[in-house]
Design a protein around this nucleic acid. Structure first.
Ligand SMILES: [Mn+2]
Ligand SMILES: [Mn+2]
Ligand SMILES: [Zn+2]
Ligand SMILES: [Zn+2]
Lengths: 155, 155
DNA sequence: ACTGGATTTGGAATAATTCCAAGTCTTGAC
DNA sequence: GTCAAGACTTGGAATTATTCCAAATCCAGT
């Protein structure tokens, strides 16, 4: 049960991510990010807090929320909210989709087919699908118009 | 700005849906369902409450939550939760996908291409996509095993 | 009309997240 | 190295969204 992800790797990734946005590398951010990488299930903020606090007892919930938001903004983790209940976080950056179990509320990664690359995917055996849908994120026409019209120079 | 959806149609649909599960047809359920059908954006429970209460002042928030859950169970509406923040509700039963605007937090229906039927879709002009993913719902292998093994007779 | 169960209601309770102000740490300028 | 400014963390309060609960009401069947 040794660490699966070497800490050097964690540090480098985190550094890269933070650098892009001019944020600092801190002990808390490092520890929380590392915690997320060591067990790639889809923990809630509360779960992350408990796991991380075990090794860093002074850690506060506020910092966990702050850091999770930061990591999402840096593109180092994904936010997963597909049902009522606490938001989950995903540290698997490979392109993948999600399966949500209606019985146990578990979230599972569904990898894309490495051959065909895109929307083709393995559905691991044993899963029963009752519904699926595509979720797009981006900017709607109205907001795009607003941004272009106002001609702001940002992003 | 007359009612777009005739009340007879609403009543019939609701009756059918409720019948399946042996639930009663009530004034509140009718009114809330009708409210949802008249404006097919993706309102939160709070928004549904405000709209519905305008014409039925005694209506309570608890009933709105109860009824929304009921309608979801009956398959008359869909629950839409793709971000932090209040759950939204969708009364469009046509097969469609969702677009979530990162700027205004709006939710938009993305219809499937009527020709090809399935995963092909029109992306209406003006939308900018930054990310998309497929969301599956159903039962995971472990829960399937539990259900089959236990051999209970229910659903 | 009467009864049992379903439904509605207002308010309390809980869960999840956000906000805030005070303390601490880090970085860059001197 | 010292110092100031800004970034970061922290505990707790506040807010938001939802759920829970017990009492009142409604309804269907008898
Ligand atoms: Mn994932
Ligand atoms: Mn919709
Ligand atoms: Zn499951
Ligand atoms: Zn928008």
């Amino acid at each position: 049960m040794a660490k699966k992800v070497p800490i050097d790797f964690v540090d480098e990734r985190l550094n890269q991510g933070l650098a892009k946005t001019g944020l600092r590398f801190t002990a808390q951010r490092r520890h929380i990010y590392n915690t997320l990488l060591q067990k790639r299930d889809h923990p809630s903020a509360e779960e992350v807090f408990m796991r991380a606090k075990a090794e860093m007892p002074e850690l506060s919930m506020a910092t966990v929320y702050n850091t999770l938001d930061t990591l999402v903004k840096c593109g180092l983790i994904r936010q997963v909210t597909h049902d009522r209940g606490p938001t989950r976080y995903c540290s698997n950056l490979q392109k993948h989709h999600h399966f949500y179990c209606n019985e146990c509320n578990g979230v599972f990664d569904i990898d894309v087919d490495p051959e065909t690359g895109e929307p083709e995917f393995h559905m691991p055996p044993g899963f029963t699908i009752s519904h699926w849908e595509i979720l797009f994120r981006g900017v709607c026409p109205e907001c795009n118009a607003k941004k272009n019209g106002a001609g702001s120079s940002r992003s």
